[in-house]
């Protein structure tokens, strides 16, 4: 499948500027993507310090080399069910507006290069309960990668301004 896509990409490939790179990962049964430029690092699960009186999808904070960053449970954010901790679970540390935070996911897949032509903006009648957090959809061979809008997911970035 990968080879397939690579071929397709090469066809559509005009110049490097038209390629967007995403880090793909799995939450539940869905595959999601995040623009690679926003990804800072990937950690194995570590113990999380709970924060009292925060949203239910914020698991807490961790100490990342002296910096305190929040970790949010993506599955909880989408489907209101707690994530299972498995040996392939990972925490993806992302950076947005000079703020770092971590996202807990079930499995990290791979980095994919997708030609912009194959990325389409989300159609409104995409009746997913997290549709507003998906900013675009990419065709990846037979798969659909739902590219997440980091700003929408990490709401506390904007909520922080109100607070």
């Amino acid at each position: 499948m990968l080879a397939n896509l690579q071929e397709k990409n090469q066809e559509a490939e005009a110049n490097l500027e038209d390629i967007e790179q995403f880090l793909t990962f799995r939450v539940g049964e869905e595959i999601f993507g995040i623009r690679l430029l926003l990804v800072h690092e990937i950690l194995k699960p570590v113990f999380i310090t709970r924060l009292p009186n925060v949203e239910d999808y914020t698991l807490g904070v961790i100490n990342l080399r002296g910096e305190i960053i929040p970790i949010l449970d993506l599955k909880k954010r989408f489907s209101k069910t707690d994530s299972e901790v498995l040996h392939q679970s990972r925490i993806i540390v992302v950076m947005l507006n000079e703020k770092r935070s971590g996202i807990f996911v079930d499995e990290v897949k791979q980095v994919v290069k997708v030609h912009k032509k194959l990325i389409s903006e989300t159609i409104d009648d995409l009746s997913l309960n997290y549709s507003k957090m998906v900013e675009s959809v990419s065709r990846y061979g037979d798969h659909l990668i739902l590219n997440l809008s980091l700003e929408q997911i990490i709401e506390f970035v904007s909520a922080g301004k109100q607070a």
């Binding site: 910096e67 305190i68 960053i69 703020k99 909520a159 922080g160 607070a163």
Partner: peptide
């Protein structure tokens, strides 16, 4: 906490 997150009550 507000540096990376927000102020928690």
């Amino acid at each position: 906490l507000g540096k990376n997150y927000k102020d928690v009550p």
